[in-house]
């Protein structure tokens, strides 16, 4: 555990909590892509099945359980409790176009052809693109609430911090996992455009509106 990994995890946790808090506090999930949240719930479920087979540490298990529970709680808020506020007309990204290629790629490019390992690989690939429905929704409406942009910033920063963690681990531990690194780079690159808008607008106290 190094500082990049820890801040990455905390940033990830913060993102998830910001989203839950935003929906709960405003009693509304408008501007939030339910489809991205379905993908994230799929990611955590596929990746953390090793909770049942392999114990790493209390920290590891607790975080996994929080991520899974928060993902399903978010889905419940969007699709059940605050269903009336869900932006379904704008949330139209076809997630099967992400799910199918990730599943296929996981079957072909993995560390080992076992069920858990293929599911882990699938979750890594899927996570890298899971934000696309959300970014699509923001681009379609042309704006995002400030709290939603904080959520996106924290969520995007998490994988960027993991990239620094992997550079650190490569130099100091000789560790590297090519699948995670390549997917992590893809994931971070997808946020770059958003990071630029966040820094140039939201930090300066303006709303995140996309340039026309």
């Amino acid at each position: 555990m190094n500082i990049f990994r820890l801040t990455g995890d905390l940033s990830h946790l913060l993102a998830i909590l910001i989203l839950l808090w935003k929906i709960w506090k405003t009693r509304s999930c408008s501007g939030i892509s339910g489809r991205s949240q379905i993908l994230f719930a799929t990611v955590y479920t596929a990746r953390y099945l090793d909770l049942f087979t392999n114990f790493v540490s209390v920290y590891n298990s607790v975080m996994k359980i929080i991520f899974i529970a928060a993902a399903f709680a978010t889905l419940y808020l969007i699709y059940v409790k605050f269903k009336a506020t869900y932006d379904r007309n704008h949330d139209t990204f076809r997630i099967e176009f992400l799910l199918a290629p990730c599943a296929l790629l996981a079957l072909i490019l993995n560390h080992e052809f076992t069920i858990l390992e293929v599911l882990w690989t699938f979750s890594i690939y899927l996570e890298s693109v899971a934000i696309l429905p959300q970014l699509f929704l923001v681009s379609k409406t042309g704006e995002a609430e400030t709290i939603t942009s904080h959520y996106l910033f924290a969520l995007g920063s998490y994988r960027a911090l993991y990239l620094l963690n992997w550079i650190y681990r490569y130099y100091f531990e000789g560790f590297f996992d090519l699948i995670a690194i390549v997917a992590g780079i893809v994931q971070t690159v997808l946020y770059c455009d958003f990071f630029y808008l966040y820094i140039t607008r939201v930090i300066k106290g303006r709303a995140l509106k996309l340039p026309a």
């Binding site: 990830h12 090793d50 790493v56 590891n60 975080m63 390992e117 882990w120 560790f175 995670a180």
Partner: peptide, 10 residues
């Protein structure tokens, strides 16, 4: 080795 039994990252 980065197989499932060695994965400590989240």
């Amino acid at each position: 080795q980065t197989l499932i039994e060695n994965k400590d990252e989240l």
